[in-house]
């Protein structure tokens, strides 16, 4: 089975044998995949059904609410802390980012780009909140309460003195098009960032 685009990007960035923490790990697909390369660690998941799926696939999983931070984990105790497609659902994304950089030597953050032209088009032309493949919910029942654009995220990193080691911006077809390369915030649908503290 092929991995979801963002998970494939993340997997490619993590070296064999690393110790990782996967926040909002879902059914444990990424961790299970990483186990084959001797990459160990824990997933954090709050959803009951997905939690049981993690157990079934033999992934270490801790039930925790990410909005409470990462109190279980010591400073700099993981090589990578991963947060994929979950940042936008946090009550305080900035607080979680601080926690990620406290616990992890490096962070990998993936999120749907709200600056994509379709989102802009829907809001500006129809006057309605965008609904898309990455953001399928209506405004009133969406878990995605803190959407951001690529520009917003990079500004937050700069404000927090975080260095962007690598970034991958793609569309759902996992194509790195010329449009994306020229205007990533307009044409990128999924953004994945590899970050660390500056001068670290």
């Amino acid at each position: 089975m092929s991995l979801r685009i963002d998970l494939q990007i993340i997997s490619d960035w993590i070296p064999d044998g690393a110790r990782v923490l996967d926040l909002g790990c879902g059914n444990g697909t990424l961790l299970k995949h990483l186990q084959q390369r001797d990459i160990s660690g824990y997933g954090l998941e709050i959803d009951n059904g997905k939690f049981a799926e993690c157990i079934a696939s033999g992934v270490n999983v801790i039930q925790a609410d990410l909005d409470e931070g990462l109190p279980l984990f010591a400073d700099q105790s993981f090589d990578f802390v991963i947060l994929s497609q979950t940042l936008q659902a946090m009550a305080r994304p900035d607080f979680l980012l601080d926690e990620i950089m406290r616990v992890g030597k490096q962070g990998i953050i993936g999120f749907p780009n709200f600056g994509h032209w379709l989102c802009r088009w829907q809001l500006s032309i129809s006057g309605k909140m965008p609904v898309s493949k990455s953001l399928p919910n209506a405004w009133y029942d969406t878990p995605n309460i803190h959407l951001c654009t690529i520009a917003d995220f990079e500004k937050m990193c700069a404000d927090k003195h975080l260095e962007i080691i690598n970034r991958s911006i793609v569309n759902h077809a996992h194509k790195d098009t010329l449009g994306i390369r020229l205007l990533p915030n307009l044409f990128g649908q999924i953004a994945v960032y590899h970050i660390q503290k500056q001068n670290s």
Partner: peptide, 9 residues
């Protein structure tokens, strides 16, 4: 966790 052991909670 701090001892690096496999645990689910």
């Amino acid at each position: 966790i701090n001892a690096g052991k496999h645990v689910t909670y």
